[in-house]
Simulated assay, not measured.
Amino acid sequence: MEKAGGVGKGITMNFTNILVNGSTLEISLYWAGKGTTYVPKRGVYGPLISAITITPNFNTHIGFSVGAIVGIVLTSCVILAFLLLFLWMKGYLLRKSNRHEGK
């Protein structure tokens, strides 16, 4: 509250030397005897921190390229088509009904 210059005002703090373990960032907040959810008398109560936003200063894009995604989709479609063809050739799909053979 003191750093923000009042109640309900936002403050931006930049930290550059932050240790990130793998892909996990752990933030530990310690209670310093300020802020409460119990209201014994009129005043400002509640948490002193209501939101934390983390903006990385490096490229976070890790993923597949468009070509890789197209290749994966096409390969999946071809494998599915071969599987359906195999099942059809073995007679598991689209069997002809034997009900009309006796007439």
Rank of each mutant, 00 (worst) to 15 (best):
L87I: 01
G10F: 01
K34H: 08
G8I: 01
N21I: 11
N17S: 14
P56K: 03
T75S: 15
G91I: 04
V73A: 13
I27C: 03
Y38D: 10
N14Q: 13
G6C: 04
L48N: 06
I69D: 06
A51L: 12
T55V: 11
F82I: 10
N59A: 11
T12R: 15
T53N: 13
M1F: 07
H61D: 11
G10K: 07
I18M: 05
K9L: 15
N59S: 14
I69Y: 07
N59L: 05
V39Y: 07
K41C: 02
C77S: 09
L93D: 00
I62C: 10
R42N: 05
K34L: 08
V44I: 03
S65D: 12
R95Y: 08
G22C: 02
G35K: 00
L85C: 04
L93C: 05
S65N: 08
S76I: 03
K3L: 06
L93N: 04
W88F: 13
L87H: 10
S28W: 02
W31Q: 08
K103F: 15
M89K: 15
R99T: 13
K34G: 00
V39W: 02
P56S: 06
T12Y: 01
E101P: 00
L25I: 10
T55L: 08
T60I: 14
R42M: 02
K90D: 02
T16H: 06
F64Q: 10
H100S: 11
T36M: 03
I69F: 04
G43E: 00
K41L: 03
C77R: 02
R95D: 09
M1K: 00
G33W: 01
S65M: 03
N57L: 12
F15K: 08
T53H: 07
L87Y: 10
T37Y: 06
I79Q: 09
K96G: 13
P40N: 03
Y45Q: 02
P47I: 00
S50H: 08
A81W: 10
H61F: 14
S97H: 05
P40C: 01
T12S: 14
S76E: 05
M13E: 15
G33P: 01
C77Y: 10
I52S: 01
I18R: 01
G35W: 04
G67E: 15
P40Y: 07
S23W: 06
L80Y: 07
L48S: 09
W31A: 12
Y45C: 00
S28H: 10
T24V: 14
H61K: 11
V73E: 07
I52D: 03
E2S: 10
G71D: 14
P47F: 10
G102A: 13
G91E: 03
A32K: 09
S65W: 05
S23T: 15
R42Y: 05
T36K: 03
T37C: 02
G102V: 12
V39I: 15
K96A: 14
C77E: 07
W31V: 02
R99I: 15
G10Q: 11
S23P: 04
T37E: 11
Y30I: 13
T12E: 08
Y30D: 07
R99Y: 12
Y92K: 09
I54A: 11
N57Y: 06
N21A: 06
R95F: 07
E26N: 14
T24M: 05
F15M: 13
T12M: 09
V66D: 13
G10V: 01
F86N: 10
G6D: 08
T55Y: 03
